[in-house]
Computed example of a mutant assay.
Amino acid sequence: MRTAVLRVLGATALAVLAATAPAGAAEGGDADRDFTLQDPRITESSGLAASRAHPGIYWTHNDQDAPLIYGVDSRTGKTVATLTLKGVGTPRDMEAISVGPDGHVYVGDIGDNLDGTWDHVWIYRFPEPKELRDQTVRATQYDVRYADGARDAEALMVHPETGRVYIASKHKDGGGLYEGPARLSASRANVFRRIAEVPWVTDGAFSPDGERLVLRGYLLAEEYAWKDGRPVGEGTSAGAPFQGQAESVTYTRDGSALMFGSEGNHSRVIRVDRPGAAPAPGRTAPGGGAEPPGGGASGEPAGEGNATTGFLVLGLVAAAVIGGKRLLRRG
């Protein structure tokens, strides 16, 4: 029931916002450009992570599914590898994915549709495959508990230098950033402790150099400087595009841009170049400079012409999605 209602909300949002989404690159173009998820099995893309081993490949997964991870080629939007996780239980609510410096992929089965009542959640860890093909991979399952009690969360980030795992919650008492132990243990519960207050978010990611942290929600995305294991300052806008059910974000492999994803059938992943970073090939702003954050593939800055429409409907969409989730939890 939950999935069906959210699909309707997501589909409605995507239809209403179609005119506000930046245009993407044609199929078969350069890697790390806008692309559409072509696989009909991917209906609730809740997490997104750039592969370290395979340039142009992004790992994603559904919310509630068998333990399946999909490798998608950003040049075509087509799935080039389906990974079946062995050694883990049935996922409850997979919400996030990240690639660590140890060559392993981390999946956060950390969502809590009962509004923070499960006494533990899980992280799955498996080696990133050397070959892109359908295969079964053995994963390790880690129990996770929070020092201040159960809560809902959708964002899991692995620091690219230290390998420490962080989770950002979206509990009813507001968002919090939680730090895991220096090393995860498969033999005992891993206690995550609150280290900072952050916005209520649906995903997050560290930059490849480990110096920045981006957190996104349904409406906005903020990028923070990262120093001494903590976010610094209030954060700056990351130029998130208008999307229906805004669920995921990751940096490109080279850190020059952010890739924003959403749920829904054939959902779109949209590239936003970081200020001062080199744009993707063929992606320039008028006058030859780097395209402003949120700009479309054609070089038109995001928001010109249809920003008003986008802002008006985006608030309604976010309210509908959040309200729908709360209603389903009570049902």
Rank of each mutant, 00 (worst) to 15 (best):
V16F: 00
Y70F: 13
E234V: 12
W122V: 12
G261D: 11
L114A: 13
L6D: 07
T136C: 09
A147Y: 04
V321T: 15
H54S: 07
R329G: 14
V269H: 00
F35I: 10
A66P: 13
A66L: 12
G289I: 15
A15D: 08
D203C: 13
A221R: 01
P293C: 11
G264W: 00
G331I: 15
V158S: 00
E300C: 15
Y58S: 06
Y124Q: 03
Q141W: 03
G315Q: 12
S169A: 14
E131F: 07
L68T: 09
T202L: 07
A278C: 14
T236N: 03
A168Q: 05
Q64S: 14
L327K: 04
Y218D: 09
D152H: 04
S46V: 11
I322F: 06
G331P: 14
L316I: 05
I270R: 00
A186E: 12
G299V: 12
A53S: 11
Q243W: 01
Q64C: 11
T162C: 05
G204K: 00
S256M: 04
P293K: 03
N265V: 15
L37K: 00
D115M: 13
G244D: 15
E304M: 13
V232H: 02
I270Q: 04
I195G: 12
G229M: 07
A21K: 10
R75S: 04
S169W: 04
D152V: 13
F206A: 12
A307W: 05
G299D: 11
G289A: 15
A205P: 11
G229C: 03
H120E: 10
V121M: 08
L314D: 04
P281R: 05
K86F: 11
A23L: 12
A320N: 10
G204T: 08
G175V: 14
L114K: 13
R2Q: 14
R2P: 15
M157F: 05
A285D: 10
I322K: 06
L219V: 08
L6W: 00
F260D: 02
F35N: 05
V107E: 01
A225N: 07
G103D: 06
P292E: 15
A240G: 10
W226M: 12
G28D: 14
A297C: 10
R125G: 08
M1Y: 08
V16R: 01
W118H: 09
A280D: 06
T136H: 06
A153Q: 00
K172S: 15
A221Q: 07
W226K: 08
E179A: 14
G28C: 14
Y146E: 01
P199H: 03
W122C: 10
P292W: 08
L177E: 02
V16N: 00
T202E: 02
V88P: 08
N190Y: 07
V201L: 08
R33D: 08
G180Y: 01
Q64N: 12
A15L: 14
D109S: 09
A277L: 06
L328Q: 03
N62F: 03
L312H: 09
L14W: 03
D115C: 10
E263A: 04
S267V: 09
A277F: 00
S185H: 02
G10A: 09
A168Y: 04
R230C: 13
S45L: 10
D39E: 10
F206N: 06
D39N: 09
I69K: 00
